[in-house]
Simulated assay, not measured.
Amino acid sequence: MNPKTDSQTVRVKLGPRSYDIDIASDQLAACARSVERWAQDREVSARQAFIVTDANVHKPHAAAVMQSLQDANWETHLAKVPAGETSKSLTVVAGLYDQLVDIQAGRQTLVIAVGGGVVGDLAGFVAATYTRGVPFVQVPTTLLAQVDSSVGGKVGINHAQGKNLIGAFHQPLGVFIDTSLLDTLPERDYRSGLAEVIKYGVILDEEFFAYLEQNVEGLNQRAPEVLRHVIARSCELKAQVVAADEYERTGLRAVLNYGHTFAHAYEALCGYGELTHGEAVAIGMVDAAQLAEWRGQVDGSLAQRQIALTEAVGLPTRLPEGCELKQDDVIARMKLDKKTVAGQLRFVLPTRLGHVEVFTDVDEADVRRVLSS
């Protein structure tokens, strides 16, 4: 893809598992060109594709991907799962395994996920485990999936006792992102994805944060040229973190959890569905910036700029009415966070715009001060 036109490519550098993220607008009907390039590069010659999607995006998005592959003489099979988090289950996985067996899928059968984060996680887990691993391609259809979950190779399903407790690292052959797919995304879902975009600016790139501030109108209007740049830069930034800590062994990847310690507690305690993940992250990032300010790590301008940008793109900066939470409940939930060690709260906090660190010495009293503000 040519970065001088209306498309560009981001490379995720992981040695022999390296792959491209192709970003374009109004090019879904030609996605087979990218798929064929990736398959050839990795010597995948079977030309059999198993497309996993859900009821929300089967038509027109998954149908367009299937047609593109059929036009390129691929044998295609479509598996449609129910929309929503409940599809990330062993029951649904078993049904997909059965379908793969029925079509006599082999180790070169290509699994293609067309959908949001749930479909990507689910299809990726199936690809990671069927015959101990088959090739996999992501076609994310939500902004959140395009800038976050489709990049990095984390795949998985849920257990009754927790989200994503069963999973693997399975890098795709490539990721195909078409910004025009966002035209049909509901407003609330679109804005939720912008929270993760803002996060990348705060944690890794001050100039990118400034670009977002300067292009609020384009973000709100879903302007293709703005979206291509925003998605590409977000993917580049996440790819850098993933390349440095692919399997989450060094702790470097923890910076991606900025705002999430607050957010996960809010999501759970307000009741799943009251807040979208992106809305909870937006609020959590504001609280994390406030915490950093009160600890003397940053001045007040960082939190104010973050609040201004968050509100400008239509995201909340405070919990909604009707979601009044007890501080003790929030603190208790935070202590269940995966970053917590031996009950000690750990937070990803900024030391300046564009840089964050993990802190293990956060005083619970400071957290309570944030929660009471």
Rank of each mutant, 00 (worst) to 15 (best):
K4E: 14
Y19A: 10
D22N: 12
V35C: 06
E36M: 08
R37N: 13
E43Y: 01
S45P: 00
V52P: 06
N56S: 06
A62G: 03
Q70L: 03
W74R: 09
E75P: 00
G84M: 03
V93L: 07
G95E: 09
L96Q: 08
L96T: 04
L100P: 00
I103M: 14
Q104T: 02
A105W: 00
A128V: 02
A145L: 08
Q146W: 11
K154M: 12
N164R: 03
A168T: 02
F169D: 14
Q171P: 01
D178N: 04
Y200F: 15
V202R: 12
I203H: 10
F208W: 10
E217S: 15
Q221F: 00
P224N: 02
E225L: 05
H229C: 00
A239S: 15
Q240T: 13
V241K: 11
V242P: 10
D245M: 06
A263S: 15
E274L: 04
Q290V: 11
E293H: 15
W294Y: 06
R295H: 10
V298I: 13
R305K: 12
R305H: 12
I307M: 13
L309T: 09
T310K: 13
E311I: 00
V313S: 12
I331E: 05
V341Y: 11
L349S: 06
R352G: 02
D361G: 12
V370Q: 13
L371K: 08
